[in-house]
Amino acid sequence: MLFYIIAILVVISDQLSKYLIRTYIAIDEDFTLWGLQLTHIENSGMAGGLFQGYGVIFGVVAVLFVIGVFYIRRTGEMKGALIDSSFGFLVGGAIGNGIDRLLFGQVTDFIIRTKGVLNIADHAIEMGVLLLIIYGAVSWWLMTSKHK
């Protein structure tokens, strides 16, 4: 259940925030909200603006990724709150950006960071990757400590 709750919350918050940005903020307009520096850009590539114009292809990759996660979850080999949270953030982020890519051919980004401009789905994917690394490290430690 945790997996679904996180994924749904990520998709809703991501899509709502992108809708509000697209509706009320002009492209390349900078603004500050609650102390955060924001700007509205549209990215038809991937992180950092690489591979511009391939948004639909990345959308298809997102769909395949989500299918892969559902397959892994179905096998039941990876269990627990940590991996459910990781997969929830990863799937929610992939769906959030996948929706943009498949509907618009590009992703709405608006949160300014030192290494570029991102959105809520991007941050969810980062959180999912971090949790996946922690899950892997904990799993490895538990496996190696049992054999000693």
Rank of each mutant, 00 (worst) to 15 (best):
I5T: 13
I6Q: 01
I8N: 08
I8Y: 10
L9S: 14
V11S: 05
S13G: 01
L16D: 00
L16P: 00
K18V: 02
Y19L: 12
L20S: 06
I21G: 00
Y24A: 01
I25Q: 01
I25N: 00
A26W: 04
A26N: 12
A26R: 11
F31Y: 13
T32N: 13
G35F: 08
T39E: 07
S44T: 07
A47Y: 04
A47M: 09
G48F: 12
L50D: 07
F51P: 03
V56P: 00
I57W: 14
F58C: 11
G59H: 09
V60L: 14
V61S: 06
A62T: 10
L64C: 15
L64G: 15
F65Q: 03
I67R: 05
G68M: 05
I72Q: 10
G76D: 11
G76V: 09
M78Y: 15
K79C: 08
K79R: 15
A81P: 12
I83K: 09
D84I: 06
S85D: 04
F89I: 09
G92M: 10
G92T: 10
G93R: 06
N97M: 09
I99Y: 12
D100T: 02
R101A: 08
L102V: 06
Q106M: 06
Q106R: 12
V107D: 02
V107N: 04
D109W: 00
I111A: 03
K115F: 13
K115Q: 13
L118Q: 11
N119G: 06
D122L: 01
D122Y: 00
I125F: 04
M127R: 00
M127G: 06
G128H: 08
L131G: 07
L131F: 14
L132M: 15
L132F: 14
I134W: 04
Y135V: 06
Y135W: 15
G136R: 03
A137L: 14
W140D: 02
L142W: 11
T144R: 11
S145I: 03
